[in-house]
Structures are given as structure tokens and as C-alpha cells.
């Protein structure tokens, strides 16, 4: 194996919420690695802690116990500001509800993360164009979210997630609000991105979608119950049992 550390490592990660003295452990003692270039699906019933886990990987939240390493560095040691800056450069989020800014057009939405990377407006717009082209949405650059279909909005959101060339794209049920055909298109887009080497972690409820990812991580009641890598997706390479 390579000498460089995995892109992301979780070591005995737990996250406990405390409301009115009642402690809810949303994620319990979870450990796994994500390697550069992987595409992984996170599955599990509602309330099993998938989003909580994703928020921690995305540096929006910190574990109550255990440690998360991003390229070998413990993120718990980073300041709030530092984690924000890392999010701008290294993490691309895709949400179930797209989360585009309604009052900005597609290209402005796509360019938004670069505002927080300190990049000039001219370059921001140039790169946003590229990113929109990569998801096939350049012709809709000056449309506002309300003028776009759900699938189109999600494409714009994916362009936004990609614009800063992040280390990892985190998608929380990206096809959850789409019909199955549009969902399949979005999934194909993710697969194509992964083919270019983009690391992707995607939460999904759809077993059909999960089977298209090489790796599936299953949660139940906050615990990791399965972490399977399918051999048949890439038949050339054999995987140890």
C-alpha cells in the first residue's frame, strides 16, 4: 500500500447530543478509512446517525469521543476558523434539498465557495463557468434556482461542490428529492466524477444506488454494522476477503 495516510480516518468516533439532561448517542464508536479516489455509500435506517457522521467528516461538527484525521491531521486540534477555511478548500457538500441561494443565479451560486477562498470575482466566475460546463449546466448559468428543475438545481449544487477542487465530496441523500430517472442521472454524474479520481461519500436510502458504489458502509443505531467492498464493480482487481 502507499505510504501516505488515508484521506480520512475515523478512530472510535462517537457523537453524543445532550438535550435537557438526556443524552442521545447518534454515532457510537465508529472507525473506518476513506482512501483517495474512493466512492462510498453510507446506508442505514432513519435516525441511525448518517447525517451526524457526515457532518463530522465535513468539519461542521466534532466528535464527542474518538478522533477524525484529515490527511493524517487531527481535526479536533483545528480552530473553528481554520475548519471553516478547510471546508472552503477541501470539502464539497451536496444536500438533499440542493441548498442554493434563491436570490443568486446559478453561476453566482457555483462561485460562492471561492468567495471564502479569497479569489477575485473575475477568476471566480471563470472557474464557475468551467464547473457548470462539467455538470452540463453552462447554458443555465444566469437562471435562478426557482427557474430550474430539481435535477438541474442538484447539478448546479454539484458544480458548486466541485468548484474548489475539494479533497472529498460529501452528498447527503442527493437523489432523495428526485424521481428515479433524474436520480439515476445524478448518480451517473457522480460515477463519472469518481472516474476522474474525485473521492465521494454519499448517503443513500436506495439499495439500488448503493450497489453502484464500490463500497457500502452500514450504520444501525449509530453503530457501524457493515463495511463491504464489492469485488465485481472492478473485476480486474481482486480484493482480499
Amino acid at each position: 500500500m502507499t505510504a501516505s495516510p488515508p484521506l480520512i480516518s475515523l478512530r472510535s468516533v462517537s457523537r453524543t447530543y445532550r438535550t435537557d439532561g438526556i443524552a442521545v448517542t447518534a454515532v457510537r464508536n465508529v472507525s473506518f478509512d476513506i482512501a483517495q479516489g474512493e466512492i462510498a455509500a453510507v446506508m442505514g435506517p432513519s435516525g441511525s446517525g448518517k447525517s451526524t457522521l457526515m457532518n463530522m467528516i465535513g468539519l461542521l461538527d466534532l466528535p464527542s469521543e474518538g478522533a477524525i484525521y484529515l490527511q493524517g491531521a487531527d481535526v479536533a486540534g483545528l480552530s473553528e476558523d481554520r475548519r471553516s477555511s478547510l471546508r472552503a478548500r477541501s470539502i464539497g457538500f451536496v444536500f438533499q434539498s440542493y441548498n442554493l441561494l434563491a436570490r443568486h443565479d446559478a453561476i453566482e451560486n457555483v462561485a460562492l465557495p471561492l468567495v471564502y477562498c479569497g479569489i477575485s470575482r473575475k477568476e471566480r466566475l471563470a472557474r464557475a463557468e468551467q464547473s457548470l460546463r462539467a455538470v452540463g449546466m453552462l447554458h443555465r448559468a444566469h437562471h435562478f434556482p426557482r427557474q430550474l428543475s430539481g435535477g438541474e438545481q442538484q447539478r448546479v449544487a454539484i458544480a458548486r461542490a466541485l468548484i474548489a477542487s475539494p479533497l472529498i465530496v460529501l452528498a447527503d441523500e442527493p437523489t432523495g428529492a428526485l424521481d428515479s430517472r433524474t436520480g439515476a442521472e445524478i448518480l451517473a454524474l457522480f460515477a463519472a466524477l469518481n472516474q476522474t479520481g474525485q473521492t465521494i461519500v454519499m448517503i443513500t436510502h436506495d439499495p439500488g444506488i448503493a450497489t453502484q458504489c464500490r463500497r457500502t458502509i452500514r450504520l444501525h443505531d449509530g453503530e457501524l454494522v457493515a463495511d463491504e467492498t464489492q469485488a465485481m464493480v472492478l473485476p480486474k482487481r481482486s480484493v482480499a476477503p
Partner: peptide, 8 residues
Amino acid sequence: IRRALGGR
């Protein structure tokens, strides 16, 4: 959204 996209 702005915070998730890297706004401090």
C-alpha cells in the same frame, strides 16, 4: 449554507 461552504 455560507458556513458549510467555508464562510468563517
